[in-house]
Simulated assay, not measured.
Amino acid sequence: MRLLVSALEPSANLHLKYLLEELEGVEIAGIFDRSLGEPLYGMDEFSVMGIVDVLAKYFKGKEAVAEMVSLSGNCDKVLLIDAPAFNIPLAKAIKERYPKKEIVYYILPKVWAWKRKRAEKVERYCDRLASIFPFERQFYRRAEYVGNPLLDEIHLTRHPSEESETIAFLPGSRKSEITRLMPVFKATAEALPERRKLLVVPSFIAPEKVEAWYGDIRSFEVVHDTHEAVAQSHFAFVCSGTATLETALIGTPFVLVYKARTLDYKVGRFFVKLPHVGLANIIMDFEGKSPVHPEIFQDDVNPEKLLELYETMDRSRFDEKSQELRAILAHGSAKRVGEMIAQ
């Protein structure tokens, strides 16, 4: 089988890597990381860093859609992963040219958070909808829950250090997140002198940017492996994002922290009508269950509040909720998506 793949983001390519292990006799073409084969475009060609880049990528994106449509004519099936701004127009263009071409969409657009009309387009242009959250069936009529990819990708469970109390600090991966959270994290770390402090710095951040973005980090032990850092910690402070769900599944008690520009925060809260920000808590809310972990925002993200939550959080209750979350997600997704493609 020849499979046309559209995977534009690092997370999508990680999911693709595990999926390919479940597929035998499949040749891939399209857009993906160069470590996985010989793509039409490498994933790196679609990273966006500024307004000039955005304009350039817009025109490159239109060109890429046209080339992908032509390439799909020589492929048996199409696999789209996340990236709805690119993949929905691509699905539409392929269906218009090749109406019988089967299109599988994996990691569906998060219409439960915003842009709910996208669901109609995905249903119209895609044949199989591989959902990674059980509650997405409320928003997509034909969604098939396949499991969650993090349960394929997380290969360890919590094993906190016996030598010293260890705390992990995860300030995110974007410059804006890091520069806003690091002063708070440093002040919090200074108030915990006897603890071992791990600072997770993504490996893709260039060394010359670390000092500019993070400042003086001599009081931390710098690590690059998020899963290992979280697993060996007794507690964690985690910037909002996928890392919060990873931490919840590993089983390390943590607090979600989010600090943005006031205008950005207000605009986000206006458009996103959800009671929680963390994925673990969102999943539990749709299941009618209580949240897994605390969430704090904006002015509440200060050393005093972080220290208070570190001291008072009910860690045994967190353990119970973490296990409950794992039971809801049930299993990884790679095997079932592989079966879906192979059928």
Rank of each mutant, 00 (worst) to 15 (best):
L256G: 07
C239F: 08
G241M: 05
S233D: 08
F237A: 06
R261W: 12
F204S: 14
A231Y: 11
A212W: 03
L279N: 03
E211D: 14
D264H: 12
E190S: 13
A280D: 10
V238I: 14
Y265I: 06
D225S: 14
G268T: 06
G251V: 00
I217F: 07
H224S: 15
I250D: 03
T252E: 02
Y258M: 07
L245G: 00
A243P: 06
C239E: 13
I205Y: 12
S290I: 00
Y214P: 12
R196E: 14
H234V: 04
L274Y: 02
M284Y: 02
W213Y: 15
T252G: 03
L198Y: 11
I205P: 14
F254E: 12
I282H: 01
K209E: 15
E194I: 00
H224E: 13
Y214S: 10
K266C: 11
I217Q: 04
V272M: 09
H234D: 15
F286I: 00
R261F: 15
I217W: 04
V267T: 10
L279I: 12
V272W: 01
Y265L: 09
T242S: 07
L279V: 07
I282T: 03
L192Q: 07
G251P: 11
I217R: 07
T242C: 02
L192W: 08
K273C: 01
R261L: 13
E211C: 04
L245C: 01
S233R: 07
P253E: 10
T262I: 15
K197E: 04
G251H: 05
D225G: 08
E221V: 10
M284R: 09
G268D: 09
R261V: 06
A189T: 03
S290G: 11
V272D: 05
A229M: 09
K273W: 01
V200D: 01
L192T: 04
Y214N: 11
V230L: 15
A191G: 08
A189G: 15
H234W: 14
A243V: 04
F220I: 08
S203G: 14
S203V: 13
W213D: 12
E194K: 08
V222F: 02
Y258L: 13
G241E: 06
T244H: 02
T226I: 05
K259H: 14
F204V: 13
H224W: 07
E190W: 03
G215N: 09
D285C: 00
I282P: 01
D216S: 06
M284T: 04
P275W: 03
T262C: 03
H234L: 06
E228H: 14
D264G: 08
K273P: 04
V277C: 10
F286P: 01
R218D: 15
V238A: 14
I250E: 05
S219D: 11
A191L: 07
H276Y: 15
V210T: 06
D225V: 10
A206G: 03
F270N: 09
R195L: 00
M284F: 03
H276A: 08
D264R: 08
H224Q: 14
S219F: 00
K186L: 10
G268H: 08
A191C: 06
D285G: 01
T226N: 02
A236D: 07
F204E: 11
L274K: 05
